[in-house]
């Protein structure tokens, strides 16, 4: 099985020090990756920071203003609704399909793989344009339902990979036959046997989808816009109004992403699912 994330060692038993060029490359990498994030965190609590190398003082005022912004709770709620319903729909669509293809319809695996890679080849703005033009009639037109459909498509590969890996690892065929020989029907097998066995894969996938959708801006702003304002939309609004408050919003957004990543790692260490990201 080709695991996409190999952390294989290469004989690390001997005590060697990293070479100069290695230290340089890694230091550069750390600098590039961390400075923007750390600065945003610092900026969100700095009173004034345009004359000195370190902020002149610290304050929580911007968080207070962020939390009391008129749309704060509504956008946070909308983001949660969007992310959670996407996770739910995504699970409903993908888990049974992956199970079915692995046990009963192996011939459809290449088709499934192609359908799962497809979203990567479609720019999100193009998907938004296509959906907005086709669904231009009342219940769907520019509605949160249309948005959920779009976001499920776009985040599908993130759900598919971990689940597919997990189902491959547990040998679903044997489990299915064992269950059926004990008189369980296909739904009971799926619900009582398969799902509990691939739970770590489902959790990793769900968390990846959750964090991707929580930060989603493009589809949300183009399909529903102000009618269903989510957290990233509020953030963009504030980047043009007040930088300090915007940085407080950014910090909230970064922190959620960190937390979810930690959860994914933790879930990943529970099972032996490789948390292969992206494709």
């Amino acid at each position: 099985m080709a695991k996409s994330q190999s952390t294989q060692t290469h004989g690390s038993s001997k005590k060697v020090r990293p070479a100069g060029w290695q230290i340089f490359m890694v230091a550069f990498f750390l600098f590039y990756m961390l400075v923007p994030i750390i600065s945003t965190y610092a900026f969100s609590v700095a009173t004034r920071w345009d004359r000195t190398i370190l902020p002149e003082g610290y304050t929580l005022e911007f968080y207070q203003r962020a939390f009391s912004a008129s749309y704060f709770t509504i956008t946070l709620r909308n983001s949660l609704i969007l992310s959670l319903s996407t996770v739910l729909v995504s699970m409903l669509v993908i888990i049974p399909t992956v199970y079915w293809v692995h046990t009963r319809l192996v011939g459809a695996k290449p088709l499934l793989d192609v359908l799962m890679i497809l979203p990567f080849g479609i720019p999100m703005v193009v998907l938004a344009l296509a959906l907005v033009q086709v669904y231009n009639f009342p219940p769907m037109a520019r509605s949160p339902f249309l948005l959920i459909g779009a976001v499920v498509i776009y985040s599908m590969p993130f759900m598919y990979r971990p689940i597919s890996n997990a189902i491959q690892a547990v040998d679903a065929n044997v489990l299915t036959e064992a269950g059926q020989s004990l008189g369980a029907n296909i739904f009971q097998v799926l619900y009582r046997i398969i799902i509990p066995n691939i739970l770590p894969g489902i959790l990793s996938g769900s968390l990846l989808v959750f964090s991707t959708v929580f930060a989603e801006y493009t589809l949300t702003s183009l399909i529903v816009g102000a009618r269903f304002k989510t957290f990233p939309l509020l953030l963009v609004e504030f980047t043009r109004i007040n930088g300090n408050v915007a940085s407080a919003f950014s910090v909230i957004s970064f922190t959620i992403a960190w937390l979810v990543s930690i959860l994914i790692l933790w879930v990943g260490s529970m099972g032996h699912t490789s948390k292969a990201k992206t494709i």
């Binding site: 994030i37 930060a215 990233p232 980047t239 990201k277």
Partner: peptide, 14 residues
């Protein structure tokens, strides 16, 4: 995964 709006804003900050 840190793409998008928060990242863009972080670059404005620095």
């Amino acid at each position: 995964n840190f793409a998008g709006v928060p990242l863009a804003f972080a670059f404005v900050v620095i």
